[in-house]
């Protein structure tokens, strides 16, 4: 990674931080007007949008980190990792692509809190954890290109152009390490993609994912309620729906 990349990352991080400040301030005031500034104005409309949205074109969000080709890949992949189905909306409807793109403009994207001095021993035993010199931005940039190349050789199309069953098969081969990439281990790429997808599905919407609190509704997690004094001892379903940091309710 070049110094320019890092500077660019910092600039875009600052830009994102600045756009977030009013939102945090509103939430901090406790007035709960935060919902007015988020993308989904009302749960009912959001639901209709979710149901209407075809895969790959789910939001008006414009990616900052991903190229158009990468964006298509991420939209297609997360829709298979957590699909919309009979249990409710999936990762695409939750805004996971936006979440991942935004994460890739934070310090996480450059491994800012990881120890990244060499020498690197990439073939270390798994017990020693992450030993690559790649940071998340590299893993996505190299991994998506490698996955699309691999799909091209395997299936004659980019990943996003495959049908759902073939996409599932391809993701399964990545997960199992049966697809071999040169630039980044396929299993590492897959594990970051899956981990970040789940983060985006279940995080507070302040980070760009879990729109409409769909992840929390799926599992009956109450979000930022954070006061269970009267429910501690009760072995009953918790009845109060979730709320977010910005005061959005589902």
């Amino acid at each position: 990674m070049s110094a320019d990349d890092i500077l660019d990352s910092r600039r875009s991080f600052l830009r994102k931080s600045l756009t977030l400040i009013p939102v945090v301030t509103v939430a901090g005031s406790g007035i709960g007007l935060g919902a007015a500034v988020v993308a989904d104005p009302a749960p009912a409309q959001a639901k209709a949008r979710d149901e209407a949205a075809p895969a790959g074109s789910g939001t008006a969000y414009q990616p900052v980190f991903f190229t158009a080709e990468e964006w298509a890949f991420v939209n297609a992949a997360v829709a298979r990792l957590i699909p919309a189905d009979a249990t409710g909306p999936g990762a695409l409807e939750a805004g996971v692509p936006e979440y991942i793109d935004r994460q890739l403009t934070t310090p996480y994207a450059t491994g800012a809190t990881w120890y990244m001095q060499g020498p690197f021993v990439a073939d270390a035993a798994p017990e020693f954890g992450y030993q690559l010199r790649l940071v998340p931005r590299d893993i996505y940039r190299l991994g998506i290109a490698a996955a699309d190349d691999w799909c091209g050789r395997q299936y004659g199309k980019r990943f996003a152009e495959l049908d759902a069953a073939t996409q599932d098969q391809a993701l399964g081969l990545l997960e199992a390490g049966k697809a071999t990439f040169d630039a980044v281990p396929a299993k590492v790429f897959f594990s970051y993609l899956l981990t970040n997808t789940k983060e985006g599905f279940f995080c507070d919407p302040i980070h760009g994912g879990n729109k409409g609190l769909v992840g929390w509704k799926l599992v009956n997690f109450p979000g930022a309620r954070a006061d269970f004094m009267d429910w501690v001892e009760r072995g009953e379903r918790y009845p109060i729906p979730p709320v977010s940091i910005r005061g959005e309710r589902a």
């Binding site: 945090v24 939430a27 996480y108 995080c203 507070d204 980070h207």
Partner: peptide, 13 residues
């Protein structure tokens, strides 16, 4: 509260 009720920022990052 509520900023600290943020699993991503604290537990995950």
């Amino acid at each position: 509260y509520p900023q600290v009720i943020d699993e991503l920022t604290y537990s995950i990052r």
